[in-house]
Each structure stands twice: as C-alpha cells, then as structure tokens.
C-alpha cells in the first residue's frame, strides 16, 4: 500500500471514527513513534458546522457538552425562569436526535433534525406552549404533599396528593394545564361526596390547588400546606419507609417506581398495597383470567372486605 492509499483509508474508513483511533492511524502513516498517550484524548468526531451552530445561544438556549462532543445538553430558561433540559446526540452529518428531556412527550421528541436551530426551535415552541401546564404542576408541587411520583418532574403529568392519612387525590394535568381523570384513592365517603360536588362546581378562573382547597374545605393548614409539609418533611424518609406493600413487603418496586396506596375501602383496614401487586393477586384468585374491563373485584387480602382494582399505570 502506498502512502496515498493509506491516507485515503484512514480518512474514509469507518473504523477511524474516534479521535484517538484516527490519530493512531495518522501516526502510523508518518511512521513516527506512538509514544504520545492518545488514549488520553477522548472525543467523537463531529463536523465543524455542528460546532459552529452551538457557539451562540439560540432562543436563549444554552449548550453544554456531555461525555463527548456528540452529546449536548440544551438548557432553556422560560419566562418564569424555570429551567428545562433536553439531551441531544449528534448521530452523523445533519442527523440530530433527542435522547431524553424533562418535558412531557411530544411527537417532535422522536424526530430527527438536520440542524441545531430547527431542533431548538421545536423545543422552544413546545416549552412556550406548556406554560400553563408547568404553572399548575409547579403550584401543586409547592403547595401540596406529593406521595407519588416519588421525585415529581415536569415529565410526569400526574400527581398523587395527600388529603389525609388514608386518602390520596389523583390528578392528571393536560398539556393545556387543565385537570383530568381526578379521583380519590382510599376509603372515605365524605371526601368522595365532596369531590363529586366540587367537580360540578369547578371554578375555571382559579388554579387547580385553589380549587382542591375549596372542594375539600381545606384551610391553608391541612393539606399543604406548608405547615404540614414542614412537619412531615424532616421525617419524610422514615414515613416512606414505614409504608410497605402488604403483598411484596417493599415500599418501592424495582421495576416500576410506585408507592403502596391505601386501596382498601374498609375504614379499619390500615394496609397499603401496590396497585400492581393487588391486581396480580386478584387475578390469581380468579384462576389467572384477566378481567374483561380492566377492573377486577375480590376481597382484601388483609381484612377480606370487598375490594376492586384496575390495572392502569
């Protein structure tokens, strides 16, 4: 092989896709000694256009490199100075993909972009359209005691709010910032009645937290609300450890991050279950036949009172 061929080989072959290997190839061409520690340089090749695009912030998005030049974190500060992050990967010339982010799902997250501006534009528009969604979730997180998700982010569009020891309120927030699929977890006819009434008299001029407070007649000292969350927070870890599922004896499941819930309607039954554990047990009682409408009935494994369970989430 003459030098020209070797050179072409080094420049064009896919084997030389990282800087150290590439430099090694070049070094062997010059047939100098390879004593320079090439391994110390770690970088994936990117084209200069990509780098130049990242030089200036676009739409106020800042860029930072991750493990290699191909991994970039975009940070966007919105009007309310919340920070939103998006991780992108450079997969090749004009091929940018989004790997993860802390925003709810949107179709553009699956798309492939040819340049940074296009991608950031989509990110920017998505974040701007979600302002009321962020506002409601942030408000709930700041004012209520959240039991699930364990570490709430803007990616999770639902919250389980503590109403009292045995009652949780499940709320989903739509991308437009409206509540949906609101229901109570746990026993309590009183709360149930209040919720039915409250949904009918929902005040659309107020935010979700204000509505919840007035529906359940909670003054500012009972659910949140600061006083309680401060009282609970210091021993938060302990409290969470104490609540274990009566079936798997764990508080957190390894395969899905959910916490045991007070699912039994019997006021005297103090046991919590993971929804998935209870569902699996009730199905096993029925000889393994899954229910036709997603909801299965049976009896509580602790107090034997009637109980029902759905398999969503």
């Amino acid at each position: 092989m003459n030098k020209a061929q070797c050179l072409r080989n080094v420049l064009e072959s896919k084997e030389f896709n990282t800087l150290p290997i590439f430099l090694k190839g070049v070094a062997s061409l010059i047939d100098g000694d390879e004593s320079i520690k090439l391994e110390s340089i770690s970088s994936y090749l990117v084209d200069s256009q990509f780098l130049s695009e990242l030089k200036d912030p676009i739409h106020g998005v800042d860029f930072a490199f991750g493990d290699s030049l191909r991994d970039v974190k975009c940070t966007l500060k919105d009007e309310e100075s919340r920070l939103h992050e998006l991780y992108i990967t450079y997969e090749g010339v004009k091929k940018l993909k989004i790997t993860s982010g802390d925003i709810p799902y949107a179709p553009f997250l699956d798309q492939c972009f040819s340049n940074v501006e296009e991608l950031v534009g989509a990110f920017f528009r998505h974040v701007r359209s979600l302002q009321s969604y962020f506002y409601e979730l942030e408000n709930i997180d700041n004012n209520c005691v959240i039991l699930d998700p364990i570490k709430p982010t803007f990616k999770d569009n639902f919250r389980n709010i503590r109403i009292d020891d045995k009652t949780w309120l499940y709320v989903e927030v739509t991308l437009d910032g409206y509540p949906s699929n609101m229901h109570l977890i746990g026993q309590s006819e009183v709360w149930q009645g209040k919720l039915q009434n409250g949904i009918l008299n929902w005040d659309h001029d107020k935010n979700i937290v204000e509505n919840i407070t007035s529906i359940f007649d909670l003054n500012d000292h009972s659910i949140s609300y600061k006083s309680l969350s401060e009282a609970i927070k210091p021993c938060d870890a302990e409290v969470k450890d104490d609540i274990i599922c009566g079936i798997c004896f764990c508080s957190e499941l390894p395969d899905n991050l959910s916490v045991p819930q007070p699912l039994c309607q019997n006021l005297n039954c103090d046991v919590h279950f993971h929804k998935s554990c209870l569902f699996q047990w009730l199905v096993a009682c029925e000889g393994g036949r899954p229910p036709s409408f997603g909801i299965i009935n049976g009896s509580c494994p602790t107090c034997l009172q009637p109980i029902s369970c759905s398999n969503n989430n």
Binding site: G246, I247, V271, W281, A284, C285, P301
Partner: peptide, 11 residues
C-alpha cells in the same frame, strides 16, 4: 391451598 378452595393469602 389457593382460593376459592383454600384460604392462602399473599399477606
């Protein structure tokens, strides 16, 4: 034994 014949419970 498993229910309904038996009275095994996961608790």
């Amino acid at each position: 034994k498993m229910p309904p014949k038996g009275s095994w419970l996961p608790t």
